[in-house]
Design a protein around this nucleic acid. Structure first.
Lengths: 221, 221
DNA sequence: ACGGAAACTGACCGCCGGGTCATGTTCACC
DNA sequence: GGTGAACATGACCCGGCGGTCAGTTTCCGT
């Protein structure tokens, strides 16, 4: 978890700088992607470069901290949506939140799209998100809200795809992703076509724990 | 156009190096994306770094040459498919070719997804591709093969999105994009749902020529 | 009030990238 | 074969990056 709570005995300037730093890094990464420099983040926070490295040993650590924050929030949203009655509507809401998060954060897109940018913690958080998405999807599948051959991994992968579809026109039409989210969801509801080719596969080939019974793609309901 | 033809009076070593260079750059960009260095490209071509800059003044020029080659090929494919009887099948084939091209070339993905990497020539080529896609889509729409509110711009944008969906698992499942292409196409066929939100928009807000009558999204068939 | 540990600072390092240029080499033409 | 222009070469420049560290400042406990 990201430790935002102040431990007793911490210096006031330290917690202040840490908060400034996290805020600045969140903004900077969101606007400019993972390629933003540590120098710029320091400047935005009103802090010297060395201070950044005192709080986060490497750029990778800082990026991970920001991404974990985002992933945790999304996982929390998904968790809450597990309580909803209409599973398909819940799934829709989850996807909206996910694509919106991607559209508003360039670094998030970079990290999701390029596994080489993910450290162990981030991979874990993504796997956890995938796990919740799997449950959410299973419910929607059972209720007949989405076709039978869709898995949670599909849903998570689709978030990146839907966003990417709209990304080239994001500057001029910041809301275009809604169009493609709707289009994707229409596709997810289809039941009259042949089953999808190629196995769904899992997001991470070596997920250490949580086998999370892979749902079969046989037609039912 | 990319000048691959040798002009009379050109030195033999020059045309040889140019061919080596284009080959090496094509490979290098495809494998490693736009971030590959000019030094590595020179090395792959078996040529000194200075030679690269003699043939292409800047990295941007070299990248553009490679991308134009790819875009022209894709536009040619689309052009040929305009002759097909079954417009929906032709559109399907075009999308397969497009997503396959993206899946096989990381630089292509980078350039398509980030407009800031496109110079004027590349933007033109993309606009031209968009124009052909528009025609291809219009035919499919008229034949009832795809829903009425889909435009050519949607199709071009979807290529990037479909690929991106599968990108995170591309290392372990190189063919996963076929699954999401099928899913997208199922969505494109849907006719029983409400029309898509948000206007389709055009790929480039300032396309100097070819107004290319924007199809209205009213329901018909 | 004060002492010292902890945090901050910014000049500095090594590295790597795109791009240049004086020098050496090759080819086409006569 | 000779000659000159076009081409190839690779050492070099500059800027920006992630990351370091000796010296300075700040804050907390007493």
């Amino acid at each position: 978890m990201t430790e935002t709570t102040a431990i007793a005995g911490q210096r006031a300037d330290m917690v202040r700088n840490r908060r400034l730093l996290l805020g600045a890094a969140t903004e900077a990464f969101a606007e400019r992607g993972v390629d933003v420099s540590m120098g710029e983040i320091a400047q935005r926070a009103g802090v010297a470069k060395g201070t950044v490295f005192r709080h986060f040993a490497t750029k990778e650590d800082l990026l991970a901290a920001i991404m974990l924050q985002l992933l945790d929030r999304l996982t929390g949203t998904a968790d809450r949506l597990l309580q909803a009655d209409d599973a398909a509507a819940a799934l829709w809401e989850f996807m909206t939140a996910g694509v919106e998060a991607l559209a508003g954060d360039r670094a998030f897109c970079d990290v999701i799209g390029r596994p080489s940018l993910q450290n162990a913690e981030v991979r874990d958080a993504i796997a956890k998100l995938g796990h919740v998405a799997e449950t959410l999807t299973a419910r929607a599948r059972e209720q007949g809200g989405v076709r039978a051959d869709i898995t949670g991994t599909d849903i998570v992968l689709l978030l990146g795809g839907i966003h990417q579809t709209a990304a080239p026109v994001l500057d001029t039409q910041p809301q275009a992703w809604r169009r493609y989210l709707e289009l994707a969801f229409d596709g997810l509801r289809v039941t009259t076509t042949r089953p999808l080719p190629h196995p769904p596969g899992r997001l991470l080939l070596a997920d250490p724990r949580s086998p999370a019974d892979p749902p079969r793609a046989s037609a039912e309901s």
